[in-house]
């Protein structure tokens, strides 16, 4: 049975008809053209599809679209505000943390939640928090560096982002 659902997507309320078995990842990518969340494994092993649902990182490849009815969904596309990049996005750019870039949306979404939970993460805590995200290019070195730097700049309050 198809169902009409309504949810907040990157700040705007949207409506869409979905099948009960339709995955959030496919709905975002194919019905809303938001291809920032990536498919890379489809079984919750790589983190490339991570989005925030009510502020919590969620694997869109394992989430049914009907489950976000009435909730708040943020994808990587919704992170920059009024053309201003989030400090995490800036830090990833400035620290050479991006290579092919395919894994990066997932890392940034997970790191966003980490820095909300823990504004003073140690290097070890960062590594533990992102252990569910796979990057085959960077060896995680510059990614960890960028997350550390973003934590600092967020603490310095240089941004209105939360």
């Amino acid at each position: 049975m198809e169902r009409r659902i309504r949810f907040r997507l990157n700040g705007e309320w949207v409506e869409v008809t979905v099948k009960p078995n339709e995955l959030l990842l496919n709905v975002l990518r194919e019905k809303f053209g938001l291809t920032g969340p990536k498919y890379a494994c489809g079984i919750g092993e790589c983190g490339a599809c991570t989005v925030l649902v009510d502020g919590e990182p969620v694997l869109a490849c394992l989430t049914l679209a009907v489950d976000v009815d009435g909730r708040d969904v943020v994808t990587i596309e919704g992170l920059a505000r009024d053309g201003e990049l989030h400090p995490l996005q800036k830090a990833f750019l400035e620290h050479g943390a991006i290579q092919c870039g395919y894994c990066i949306p997932g890392f940034i979404m997970v790191a966003k939640r980490l820095l909300e939970e823990n504004p003073y993460p140690s290097e070890e805590e960062i590594r533990e928090y992102i252990r569910g995200n796979i990057c085959r290019c960077t060896g995680y070195v510059n990614i960890v560096k960028a997350i550390k730097a973003a934590a600092e700049s967020l603490r310095a309050g240089s941004s209105s982002h939360t």
């Binding site: 291809t35 920032g36 498919y39 990587i76 996005q89 991006i98 870039g101 395919y102 990066i104």
Partner: peptide
């Protein structure tokens, strides 16, 4: 010198289209 890569902003904002993103 370290500079911001030309495709960097498209990559951190999720706007870059890879082949897997073509419909």
């Amino acid at each position: 010198k370290n500079t911001i890569r030309h495709d960097g902003i498209a990559k951190v904002t999720g706007k870059l289209k890879y082949a897997y993103d073509i419909y």
